[in-house]
Write a protein that binds this DNA or RNA. Structure first.
Lengths: 339, 339
DNA sequence: GTCGGTCAAGAGAGCGCTCTCTCACCATGG
DNA sequence: CCATGGTGAGAGAGCGCTCTCTTGACCGAC
């Protein structure tokens, strides 16, 4: 299509000529191989400096079959992803870890037609490993993803093709269990929950943990509203919940983003928090502490999760055989004013 | 170092053999060139399907001198970047735009030793364009960045090497001017501001706009505290401000992230907001509306900014000569309860 | 003085792709 | 009937790099 524009960048060849040595020698110097005479290495370094030589990444990738890049795959809508502080924190952790390596992060957000785009990208040899964040059970990508390329999941992958995958997760069930226990301890008995999507492990596990905590006290939730981890979804869930169970006195919301929205809605609906309804969120997002009623919530180590994800990917690339297939990080209940 | 592991992926060559045609023909089919006989194209497509062939990206990049990738360069600490909703929103916009293209985003966060890492990366031919976000005047990267590769800045680049650069910015000065005007309209006269870093254009421009608004009413700020766009910095700035000017009655804080922190601190210090001190933020981050006192703020179209950045980068890559070097997006004052 | 051993540097192939150049083929017109 | 032109497909070079293989220089040893 477009004419090949001359990049005008120096090549190994040019450095070799400049230094009066062979291409191979320059390559050896660039890659720090010890079998090069000191004086010669100095000459080569000088030539590199003079020409401002930087190795071409594509050429290296082609011959080495190694790109020094990791893909972050997000089979989710951009807005849902970026508006969710948990995901952003995971990316922060990944980035922080990669900054200490010489790997580059490739961000691939593919909500539309994820199957084709993602699998093609991973098969193109553009990256050495992939990290999946925000995947759903239905995502073809999980089933499809070539097991030849190291892959790590943020959160337990659900659905087919998930078995044997390496993942790092928060102990969602345990965290939700704590939330349930806490509400009961605060004397609440008419408890409901607003969940995340049940095709995501985080949604499912948080619901299960909460229900189990209630069951241990011979209680059952008076309402379970399944929604989508968005503030808007939470508000609609609240409306339905209160329409059916006006005497609700405790609410566990499966993410802080939703919990803060619920909180605001409850107050505008005339419910005092926590006097009328106690609310517990999940995540300990920044929003939790600055909300109009600072939110009791379950803290999860999201940044750490990102770090561990990147670390696992790096180790898999290295061929490290002892990467733990499953890592589950502990949660902690943070008590604030909403309960 | 590592032995070259056989990728085991089909190559053009193998597809050619499978289809009984030449490499060139397969290449033509893959790239949708019209000069191929229909039947032959069908045969090739079948072979591609059978072998699950996907073109190798590195090989293509090498010969085409085009990577179909854009770098997002962040010469800032990971935490400061990811904890700032404005930056995240910009990334969201960039991603949203790129999703509609077949370009990939390379995220390069390089706070330590940014000069070497960034310039080397850009010189390696790994990307076709670069988008700079969160740059400071001191950043060597700005001066250094090769003008041979299309580059776009989020926010007016300050300092040396900034002249003639393509950038997209919010009308920071005008927004801050509105904030100042609004505080004055609300009857406040003892006005102070907490600024961002003055080596970032956003920090400088917001200060200027605010001071200008005051000057138009023959006022001068009773306090100017320069800090770093972080909540912690805002709190320290507040402490200093109130120690020196206890009768402060209006405060313009140059980012919502800081404004919310200031708000919380002011209230814990016994000041009522807005009765004692009216507060205006900047950005209209999600936090602004959910804060304990919903925040009056200056809205900036951050996601749109990201979209435009990506769009400009794409157009520059296309060789489009009429990319506007300067785009300034309007702001809007959002009145809430803090004033 | 010759030989084998060691080590540094060069020669050259090849990674997977694209693109130009060439050629074969068929249709057309004089 | 042959010259002409147009069209579709193949041959082959080359993008910038790494790596194996080979060469050559130098050393000590017999």
């Amino acid at each position: 299509m477009s004419a090949r524009p001359p990049l005008g960048r120096p090549t190994l060849e040019m450095v070799a000529k400049e230094a009066g040595v062979s291409r191979a020698t320059v390559s050896r110097v660039v890659n720090g191989q010890p079998t090069v005479n000191e004086d010669m290495a100095a000459v080569v370094h000088a030539a590199i400096e003079r020409l401002q030589y930087v190795p071409n990444r594509a050429a290296r990738t082609l011959v080495n079959r190694t790109s020094n890049a990791i893909a972050l795959i997000v089979p989710e809508e951009t807005t849902r992803f970026f508006q969710n502080p948990f995901f952003v924190a995971v990316v922060e952790g990944i980035t922080a870890r990669l900054e200490q390596s010489d790997f580059i992060l490739n961000l691939l957000v593919a909500s539309s037609d994820p199957r084709a785009k993602i699998t093609r990208f991973l098969a193109s040899g553009a990256v050495d490993a992939a990290i999946f964040v925000a995947h759903h059970a239905g995502d073809a990508s999980i089933t499809d993803v070539d097991r030849r390329i190291p892959t790590v999941f943020a959160g337990r992958p659900a659905g087919e093709g998930a078995e044997g995958r390496v993942y790092i997760d928060t102990d969602n069930a345990d965290g939700a269990h704590r939330a349930g226990q806490h509400l009961i301890q605060r004397g609440r008995r008419r408890l409901a929950t607003i969940t995340g999507p049940l095709d995501m492990a985080a949604g499912q596990d948080r619901l299960n943990g909460f229900v189990r905590a209630l069951a241990e006290h011979e209680l059952e939730p008076v309402g379970v509203e399944v929604t989508d981890f968005t503030p808007r979804g939470a508000v609609r869930a609240c409306e339905r919940l209160l329409a059916r169970t006006p005497d609700l006195d405790g609410l566990f919301v499966a993410s802080d983003l939703m919990a803060v929205a619920a909180l605001t809605w409850l107050r505008s609906a005339g419910r005092d928090v926590p006097a009328d309804v106690a609310v517990v969120g999940f995540g300990d997002d920044p929003a939790a502490s600055i909300a109009e009623v600072p939110l009791t919530t379950v803290r999860q180590p999201s940044i750490e999760m990102g770090r561990l994800l990147a670390d696992a990917a790096l180790r898999l690339i290295d061929g490290d055989a002892d990467v733990a297939p499953v890592t589950v990080l502990p949660t902690e209940l943070i008590r604030r004013s909403s309960t």
